[in-house]
């Protein structure tokens, strides 16, 4: 088992333990559980939607930018580099606020949800571009050489030989990026979207039962993180059938 998968397993185990521990804690304070959970679950649903949609956009942007940076013509490469540097050089919150407050100025009016998904997707996509690039470069050089020797076009080589091998390697780091996206999604509460954090903040302002509310919130975030990690693991298992990976023993 590769070191990365082992690290992921370890993380999985710890998150499982934490979720069960925290859930137990919450069930113990039954009253708070009953009172706050419905509202928070509604918020968690919004968070999940943003995470999934943002994640999808991030993957698309990451693939495009990563490939452009590696194989694009000069202007495309320059565009990719600019995109990557700008979105990695500024924080998600700055990007979120900029799109939220400034875009209307240019006549573009989007719903807060759309702004959130675009901002987060572009942000994580910039980091994803590096993951894509690194994974492609990690494919053994002999594969490229064999493809060239067989006279494959670059497109065919990428499509049939390189990307399938690179995609498997990409899954663990993308998994980490999706978790980062989940955490960044909390920021959308600051542009009035009713996500999990917003709901928690609201409930706290009215009842001030901070510990109960935020314990539930943390369990819910951990739960979503768990879902992400497990999906990534399943994806990795499906994708690596037939590919010899990890240490040979």
């Amino acid at each position: 088992m590769s070191l990365r998968t082992r690290a992921m397993h370890r993380r999985l185990l710890v998150v499982c333990v934490l979720v069960s521990f925290a859930t137990g804690l919450c069930v113990a304070s039954f009253a708070g559980f009953r009172e706050f959970l419905p509202g928070l679950l509604a918020g968690a649903w919004v968070t999940l939607q943003i995470t999934v949609a943002g994640g999808a956009l991030a993957v698309v942007m990451g693939l495009i930018a990563g490939l452009c940076k590696l194989y694009g013509v000069r202007p495309l490469r320059w565009l990719a580099v600019t995109y990557i540097e700008v979105f990695r050089g500024t924080s998600a919150l700055v990007q979120l606020f900029w799109l939220f407050f400034v875009l209307p100025r240019f006549g573009v009016s989007l719903s807060p949800m759309a702004v959130a998904i675009i901002a987060l997707g572009l942000n994580v996509g910039a980091y994803g571009a590096e993951v894509v690039r690194a994974s492609i470069l990690a494919v053994p050089h002999g594969q490229f050489e064999a493809a060239i020797a067989l006279n494959m076009s670059r497109l065919t080589m990428l499509r049939r030989i390189i990307l399938p091998q690179a995609l498997v390697r990409m899954i663990p780091p993308w998994g980490n990026l999706f978790i980062e996206l989940l955490k960044a999604s909390a920021l959308v509460s600051l542009i009035t979207i009713s996500d999990l954090t917003f709901k928690a903040y609201q409930m706290n302002q009215t009842t001030f039962r901070t510990v109960e509310i935020f314990s539930l919130v943390l369990v819910l975030y951990l739960g979503i993180a768990l879902m992400i990690t497990m999906s990534m693991r399943m994806l990795e298992a499906r994708a690596s059938t037939g590919l010899a990976r990890g240490r040979t023993e």
């Binding site: 993380r11 710890v14 998150v15 934490l18 978790i179 989940l182 955490k183 960044a184 999604s185 909390a186 920021l187 509460s189 600051l190 954090t197 928690a200 903040y201 706290n204 935020f214 919130v217 943390l218 975030y221 951990l222 993180a225």
Partner: peptide
């Protein structure tokens, strides 16, 4: 793991 896996904003609040 707990701190790493949950949003900074929530921890700040």
């Amino acid at each position: 793991e707990f701190i790493r896996s949950t949003p900074l904003l929530v921890q700040l609040f």
